[in-house]
Nucleic acid binder design. Sequence first.
DNA 1: TAAAAGTCTTAAACTAGTTCATTTTTTTTC
DNA 2: GAAAAAAAATGAACTAGTTTAAGACTTTTA
Lengths: 197, 197
Amino acid sequence: MNFKESHTLILNNVARFIDLTELEKRKFISLLAEIKVKKKAYLMQAGEIAQYEYFIAKGCLKVYTLDKDGATHISMFAIEDYWTGDMASFMTKEPTRYFIKATENSELLGVSRANYDLLFQEIPKFERFYRILYQRSLISYIRRSNHGISLDAVERYIAFKKKYPKIVNRITQKDLAGYIGITPEFMSKIISKVNRM
Amino acid sequence: MNFKESHTLILNNVARFIDLTELEKRKFISLLAEIKVKKKAYLMQAGEIAQYEYFIAKGCLKVYTLDKDGATHISMFAIEDYWTGDMASFMTKEPTRYFIKATENSELLGVSRANYDLLFQEIPKFERFYRILYQRSLISYIRRSNHGISLDAVERYIAFKKKYPKIVNRITQKDLAGYIGITPEFMSKIISKVNRM
DNA sequence: TAAAAGTCTTAAACTAGTTCATTTTTTTTC
DNA sequence: GAAAAAAAATGAACTAGTTTAAGACTTTTA
């Protein structure tokens, strides 16, 4: 029996770190919620408690906070084969400060808090999967905040294009500015400058 | 039988998350290396592979990287009762990009890579201890990089004084500038401005 | 397919923070 | 406790990025 496309994707993602039997695969799939969000809809809003950890099967979303002046700071863009959510809120059940908004119609697979605990009981291998996933997140998080340091906005823009070529063409210049940490006006100047080079 | 001061300190630190029997305490202590560093000496330098995770029993150290222009970016100050090191290098055995330098004569307890693995074998409770320690590190790390956003240098300085009153008086203005992310000259201006307020 | 809403561009005036250079003060070292 | 080294203060000239404002272009919606 075959799996539907989104399930094949998530199984391949998991297979990077652990091997599952056919039975375990079925069990895992049975614990996932299928979630669709239309472009411009929110998956999460500040003040809520994160109910799911999300795997993106299709689409694109932006994860961001609003600062005290109401400016948008984008912390990640999530596309196919990425995991997203707010782990801190998901674990501690404190309200999140994040917004997650779809920038395209998107299809996600969600692991609820209850099923997350159940998953470890039923298939202990997943302890390993999430340990590796989180450890890698931590390392890349530290690396990123260390790397961006001392680069000016042009260098950060060029580095982003190089590191995420698949994402650049799917997001607006304004959102890219929100990720890079500059105003949309300055982003516009940078782009016309870089293209002239 | 009593423990020496540094051992009492680390046992109390561990007791925040797990309970150990007398026997387990002895075993744990036996796996720790005692390390002393003089003021201005390095505990770690970029290019090396991190050999230990460190618990600070006494003293003060700064953890920093040098950027491409040779400027110092301090990522943390570690004082008594803190853990420090470079977890990424310690785990992956890749060379670190960090320097750790004592700003006072310091006494540390170190868990070596070999003893770290042994610790989990001998006292599985420590899986839980480190899971919680790392999870908290990740959450506070994300929170910190999110919080600093949109604050100007004066606000970041005031926030630092409020959050780490014990540390402010033990470090130089120059090092504080390296943590806050500004030049020592501008730090000097900020301080005279804030004191005049 | 017209109107509305959002995005992008351009430009001038501005500001937070840097750079460089010099002097004073504090700390370290022998 | 004198000499050397490092840290702190101050000021003037500079720069990367912001702000504000207005018009052109694109996308969404009804």
